[in-house]
Design a protein around this nucleic acid. Structure first.
Lengths: 359, 359
DNA sequence: ATGAAAGCGCTAACAA
DNA sequence: TTGTTAGCGCTTTCAT
């Protein structure tokens, strides 16, 4: 017993016990290469007897594959990301991979450090919901080195060539706005966390590649597209800007309500904003959809327990996680695989909070 | 270039570039042992220049510490576990550890396989919210081998000696029931997912170690304790059993309502049941707390947006995750450390859904 | 302070 | 089919 440290059972021990060479034992244990029935039986018996547990670290070291992927996201505690991660982990496990999970809190420094640490652990690939910044150096380095990387939910301009799996943010908003417009609404307010300086017209004009924009901006574009497609135009005075927090949304939308903003329907472009905006509605005892129609984002569980239940745009969260993983695994299997972006469609769930204008 | 595979930069490359021996380079890179100013400078420069990225796999292999812990939980998509995991991951990172996360879906076979795989990856320890079963073999094996293990939220009878970090389930219910009793309520209904055959009296009588029971049973005990402490006794005809799903809770509680069950307050012992039960309330347009008082479990976000806002028992989720990690890290540092269970207290958040009896 | 050498437990040629 | 021999990139004695 060389060390005082508990000596774990290795291939060598199995080989000795089974009376075969190390390689033979290794071969049958990894079910790779060939071995006689007899050898196989004896090795397996020995392994069973000694309680052999393969060392994945050594395996990874020698083979170059750790069978582990990394997920780098803002916050696992958010309903959205926890649901996506569920899909991601399910898909990973189904393919024999485990996942190292880390939160960035949308902090660029944390993201960089996390990616560095995970790269040191030699994960086989990364799924990243990147922090918005000019130069995500850590990610750029990964890509430069040829590490498999898939972006999730959003893509920064500098990462234009990295594959992205996301919701079709634009389409989601077209769906929501279209629903309201088709109900006859014309004065439709929008609650967004997009920077206030951006005018809807400018956003649309910029055209080109929407996916380089923040999801909130893409959602604003989709909103405008729905108007455009019907020969209408968005009234920027109805675009309400909030910070990314329920408190802010509640305050800002509450103020709009108190000041008598003239609108007959409102669309919230994000889950958190939806929650905040609805708080403002609930606090004031406003009746929907009589006073105005209300469309929220994400099918959060509270939306069906309030009165009336809220019409929402629902994201395929689990599917997003699965898709991101599968895209990544494709890249891991073949680093030069041609991968294309994947935009999953949202689904409109009409409920009681929306109704025809003037009802 | 020996392999066609991209040859990564290793200590040897740094040593060569810096003109020192492999050991010297390794020493300064790991900032362990001693080295001259000059050597240190040259090694660091070389590392910077070549873009050296230490291989944590090799490090783990050689040192025996992977600086990775495993979290084995039922479902990361649940609000409860995702919040706990947030705390767990935060604490792990703060101590230089990363976390491998896996879902069991409360399936014993999945749990066993997951633990096995993670053990093969040589994680330094496990935080496990175990599936309830007679013999969690995988966990028992870990413990037998001396692997650091901390149980989270619940403990099965066979794992009596494994440290546990959980909510003080009993205390949480005493708080909730006490609140209602102190408001003058006497006919207090309980909604639980605990097996119907268990009588409250039997549960209390069993006494001994509550932590070996399922959380739902512990919560039922706490409920009874609150009565007991006031010289009262629980009426088992007001104990409503539901499956562990919102649908079931909604159906079962709805039936109780429709059949005119005689009670003036109700307490739901779990988040999912709370949601389901409230659905039944909302569907029937019942006014709270006039018709009866309602106490829910977990401070879910919908509870403040419905009318009236719901009184709930709130768990310190983030703290639970942090505590579990810290306990585990203590065990990792010293396998023979004496660790004791940790039961974190719940907090009662009184809101509009509860009021004095007969109001 | 520095260097040489022996592992850690596996995979992967290459021989036999 | 089986065995031999190098590694993978680091840590860790043990000398010097």
């Amino acid at each position: 017993m060389p060390h005082s440290r508990r000596h774990s059972i290795t291939v060598v021990d199995i080989a000795r016990e089974a009376g075969v060479s190390k390689s033979t034992a290794a071969r049958v244990l990894a079910s790779r290469g060939s071995a006689s029935q007899e050898a196989r039986r004896r090795v397996l018996t020995a392994a069973e007897k000694l309680g052999y547990r393969p060392n994945a670290l050594a395996k990874a070291m020698a083979s170059g594959a750790s069978m582990t992927i990394a997920a780098v996201i803002p916050d696992i505690a958010s309903p959205y990301f926890s649901a996506v991660m569920r899909g991601l982990i399910d898909a990973a496990r189904a393919n024999g991979f485990e996942v190292l999970l880390t939160n960035t809190d949308n902090d660029a420094a944390v993201e960089e450090r996390s990616i560095e640490v995970l790269a040191e652990k030699r994960v086989d690939g990364f799924v990243i919901a990147p922090v918005f910044q000019e130069h995500p150096r850590a990610i750029e380095r990964l890509v430069a080195e040829g590490s498999p990387v898939v972006l999730l939910d959003r893509r920064t301009p500098a990462l234009g060539h990295v594959p992205l799996v996301s919701l079709d943010h634009v389409g989601a908003s077209r769906l929501a706005a279209g629903h309201l417009l088709d109900l006859g609404h014309r004065r439709v307010a929008l609650i967004t966390e997009a920077p206030a300086r951006v005018q809807t017209a400018d956003l649309i004009a910029s055209g080109a590649d929407d996916t380089a924009l923040r999801p909130s901006q893409q959602r604003q574009i989709g909103f405008a597209r729905a108007f455009e497609e019907r020969g209408l135009v968005v009234d920027d005075s109805l675009v309400i800007h909030a910070e990314y927090s329920a408190t802010s949304a509640s305050k800002v939308f509450g103020r709009a309500l108190d000041e008598g903003l003239d609108f007959t329907a409102v669309y919230c472009t994000d889950a958190v904003l939806t929650y905040g905006a609805f708080q403002a509605v609930a606090e004031r005892g406003i009746r929907l959809p009589e006073r105005f129609s209300f469309v929220g984002f994400d099918d959060q569980n509270w939306t069906t327990v309030v009165s009336p239940p809220i019409t929402v745009v629902d994201q395929p969260t689990h599917a997003l996680g699965v898709a991101a993983t599968e895209l990544l695994l494709g890249l891991i299997r073949d680093h030069d695989a041609v991968v294309t972006d994947l935009q999953l469609p949202a689904r409109l769930v009409p409920r009681g909070s929306t109704g025809p204008r003037g009802q």
